[in-house]
Structure formats: C-alpha cells, structure tokens
Design a protein around this nucleic acid. Sequence first.
DNA 1: AGCATGAGTGTAACCGATATCATTAAGTTT
DNA 2: AAACTTAATGATATCGGTTACACTCATGCT
Lengths: 329, 329
Amino acid sequence: MKPATIRDVADAAAVSVAAVSRVLNDGPVAEATRARVLDAIERLDYRPRTAARELRAARPSTLGLVLADLANPFFAQLADRIVWEARARGAQVVLLTTREDARFEDEAIQALSSRRVAGVIATPTAANSPAWSRLAELGTRLVFVDRAVEGVAADRVGIENEAITYEATSRLLALGHVRVGIVAGPEASSTGRERVQGYRRALADHGVALDTALVRYAPFRGDEGADAVGALLALPDPVTALLIANTAQSAACARRLRQAGIAVPEAVSVIVFGDEPWTELYDPPMTVVRQPVAMLATHAVELALRETGDPVEVRAAATLVERSSVRAR
Amino acid sequence: MKPATIRDVADAAAVSVAAVSRVLNDGPVAEATRARVLDAIERLDYRPRTAARELRAARPSTLGLVLADLANPFFAQLADRIVWEARARGAQVVLLTTREDARFEDEAIQALSSRRVAGVIATPTAANSPAWSRLAELGTRLVFVDRAVEGVAADRVGIENEAITYEATSRLLALGHVRVGIVAGPEASSTGRERVQGYRRALADHGVALDTALVRYAPFRGDEGADAVGALLALPDPVTALLIANTAQSAACARRLRQAGIAVPEAVSVIVFGDEPWTELYDPPMTVVRQPVAMLATHAVELALRETGDPVEVRAAATLVERSSVRAR
DNA sequence: AGCATGAGTGTAACCGATATCATTAAGTTT
DNA sequence: AAACTTAATGATATCGGTTACACTCATGCT
C-alpha cells in the first residue's frame, strides 16, 4: 500500500496541509487541531518524506562523511562517534570512502554537492583542493578532521600533532635513546609534516643531531610502513627506539617487528600513534599516543552543522599512555 | 553564488528543460543538442540535485545501513566493503548505528522510512521485528546481514554458522579436548543459537556429553564475555579449550586471558571467531574463524538494490585459519 | 458601536528534477 | 504535391513537502 502523504493526513484530520506542516514543525497551532492532526498521523503511520523536505529547505539535515578507509580502526571509531553525535542532533550521515585515491575522492565530492548536504566532514587527500574549494563555495560547511589540505576555506579539527610528537620523542631521548626512528605519514600530508616537525624540535632541544635516514615517510595505504621499519632496523647504526606516527601503518609495523623477532622493548623501544585495540593485547602492551576520538567527533559534527561563521581550527590534546614497550637505553 | 539548476542550463543552452533532462538520462537527443547541453553543464558546473530526483523517482539510489557498532572491527570492515560495493553500483549509503539498543534501532528504522531508501542492510536486534516488518511492507528492500530476526520478510546474508562451529569444535575434540567451553552471542540472536547448535552437534558426534555449564551466552556489548571466560576457567573441572564465538566479545576475552596469566595454548587452546587484526599480533597468533566479509558485502548490496523477488537466504562458507593458539591435550 | 489587534487557518506558489503528451520539422511514400 | 512516418523538441503536470500571504473571527480598546 502507498505510504501516506501530508495531504492524506490533512484530509483525515479535516484541516489544510499547512496546518499539518505547522504541527510537524511546531508552528502556531491550536491545541485541538494539533491533537486531531497528531491522531491522524498516528492512524495513517505518516512520516514526512526527507527528499521533499530537503528540496524545499534551505539547509538539509544531512551530513556527508568522507573517510579514507573504514578498515582503519581510527577512522572506524571516528565514524562511529560522528554518526552518534549527528544522531543526537537529528542529522543523518551519508558515508563515502576514498581509499586514499584522489579520483574516488573527487567522485565523493561530486556526489555530495549533488546532495546539497548541510556539511561535510572529511579526511582529505592532498591532491584535490580545487574540488574541495568549489564544494565550500557552494555553501556546504566543510570540516577537515585528522588531516587538512592547504588553501581551502574549511574548518580544521585535529590533535596537537607537533606537541604530542615532541613529547613522545622527548620521552625517548630522556631515556637515553639517541637513534630514534620515526615512521610518519606522507610528506604531503599535514599530519606527516607536523609530526616530523615535533620530532625535529625535540631532537634539537636535546642536542641530538638530525639524521634524515631516521625519518621515513610512508603512504597511508599498503605495507610500506613495514618496509620502513625494516630499513630502520637494517641501518649500519640501527635505531634503538621507534616512533610509529602513521596510524594507518601501525599494525603493519607491529607485524614486521614480530616477524623479524625483534624484542620489544629490550632491543628497541616503541611508541605507537593511535590507541587501537591490538596495542593493549600486544606482547608487551604498547605505549601509545591516544587520540581523543570522541572529542574530535563532537567538534567536527558541531562545526559541520553550524550555520555561519568563518573557518576555525580546533586542536585537541593527545595523551601519551605509558605501557610496557619503552625502556631506558 | 547559487548553484545552477536545470533551468539555468536549459537557458544557457537555449533548449528546454526536457532536453537537458534527456541528456542527463540519455534519452533520444540530437548530437548537436547534446553537445550544446553538455557544454552548458560544464560551464555552469551544474549537478542535478539528488533530493529533486529522489522526490520524483520511484526508486531512489540510496541505501540505508544499520549497524550495531562501528567500533567493532567486523562491522567496520563490513561497512567499508558495503560502501565500496554501493559506490560501484552508483548508490550512496546512509549510515546509522544502534549500539545494540532496540530504541535506537527503532529510531533508525523511522528515519529510513522517511528517506524512502531503495534498500536497507542491517544487523538487527531481536526486539524490533514489527518495525522491521512495516519497513519491508513499505516496499523497502530489507537485507539482514550477519544476524537475522524471525518473522520478517527480509533477505538474509550470513555465514554457515552451524557448520563452521561444528568444524571448529570438532578440531578441538579431535585433539583430545573434552572440556571445551564456548562463549556465544545472546541466546536470542540467530548467530548465538546457530553456533551453539553446531557446537552441540560436534559434541554429540564425538560422543562427548554436553555440560551446560560450558555454554555461555554473552551480550554483544559490555564486558560480560570476559566474565564468561573467567567463569569457565574457574570451574571445579575447568576448560582446556575455548571457543570464542561472539565476535564482539573476542578482544575482551583475549584481554582477560592475558590478565589472568593463562598460557595459550599450553594451559588452554583457543579459537576465536572473526579475523581481526589483533588476532595475528597476539602472542601466540590466534587460530581464528575467518568470515568472508567482502562476499557478505557484495551479496548484501546486490540484494538491497534488487528491484523485485521473494526474500532469499545466502550463506557463505567461513574458514578455519590455523595459527598457534591450539594444541593437542 | 467602530476599529485595531492578533491568533488560527487556508490557498497556492515554490523547490528542481522527471515523464507524458502534443507539436514541429524533416524525410518518405504514393 | 498531398498524405504519412518518424525523430527531436517543448510545454507542463507531477512528486510531497514548506511558507508567504490572505483571510476569518473573537477579543480589547476608545
């Protein structure tokens, strides 16, 4: 049977469609009318159609979420919280994934601009900034979370990458490590750059010279993170401590350590970015940098649903969670 | 600036809106006209609005995805593949989560019936079958994946729970284990029931009497899985093998084993359902039941976008992946 | 009594696509 | 040249809501 429309409800309640609409959007309606309408709605199991609403409304209540990859637990958690926060605010989420590929990202941007969503929350790839800009100019609220690309009028939500990497590196240096390797995200990514910057500042402050051979940029997808770990361990003067600052590669890196039979923390101390479930189950439990996922999600959703305002930047503090993968040199 | 509408394009190309629409949906148009229209579309950066299309169209191209919890890697992977498969077919996905709570699930169902999506893919909670039925009667294609609830005209996609649990249990029994504990999903869930059934059949076939104290049902959320493991280990005649057949509880169970200082597989052999990243990083690497997530996703999307046809049931084979957490008694 | 006020309601335009149906132009047949 | 196809195109109703505007009628005020 055909679902009821607003006109069916109006007929059933013997009022006009405007009255029904007013009941729905709590406009001014007499108590008696409201009761009759609500009763009719109940009887007919009426539910206003989102498509019709969004067509007329200035601001739809749908959000777009563009993530690289849901198989990455960090993004999965982020998505979980974002969907949850959106629900609390009466918004729904259209989910799209890019697999870190600019082509798919562009496709996603097109799809979302057709959909005229209220806002978009995204972990962008560096290669698409014109497309992002056009989306922003269309009036869609744009929020970059975790990473960001330059030159786009978007809100930014992320952690204090520079500061937390400085802290993590300092911890290792303070324990006597001198050969500290870092596996970061791509140099083209904001997280990659910021984290390496914190790393360099820590070295400088501790009077340790930078050895560029110890800085490895790995893409977010694939297994190059593991190869980077392999390379760092195979150096003539190998690392004694390792900073895995590329969340997407952390499991691959850990797998490599295990396979290579490296004793952690005896042979090498390790700090991993991202508090994923496995880090606690690993032997030994990993010292990690925990990202405040819930807070990132809350801010992102809030910004994405905001009506007006200039682009802002929100930085949440990450914390170093000490477990057992780090020891003094 | 306001985004262009189909009328703007029609004006710019000096044709009627009908002609533009025909170009968009490749109806019969003269080559010259098509070229002019495409040029205008390009110039104005026109993109047809999804809301308007969905309002008019009989079948929208949007899918609903209702998952319990994206923090669970199995669901996250499933979501990832489903979004991917949908993209390949030109459909988008609206994501909703329930946290295993019937109230939120009902909310999600309402939201989706307003949206008049083409189909819904869901991991249902047992308590909401009337709401699911109403959604199905509205003409929305309904696909239950992983779990199912009875009495609803929905497609079902899942693994052969009974068979794979039979296989896993048999493996343990064949190695001489007699006290085999199982931590399953809730008795009210289809997966919980089916897996315990496979377990029982294996016991019967191997001539081992069923001890109901060894069968533990744990909810999908919370930490009761760990408590169940604790209880099974604290029995006067404790288990020597453990089947963790509740994917959502597997990490919690592993954490408990680790905390309790149980040697795996020396003290107790373990088989875990769900090939999550941590199972390979655990010490020792866990023997697991791998679910064919990609296949489940493909079937689910295909069924959800199908126009007609009676409800069908698809069962994919799961496989036992042997690693190092199982040994002979 | 006469008029302003305002709460409650209804009518109809509108959002931006799609699809039906009528119309026009060009080509074919006799 | 008239009649008849056939292909391309245009005018317009339609989907199901929201909302601007006009209207009614009871109440308060001078």
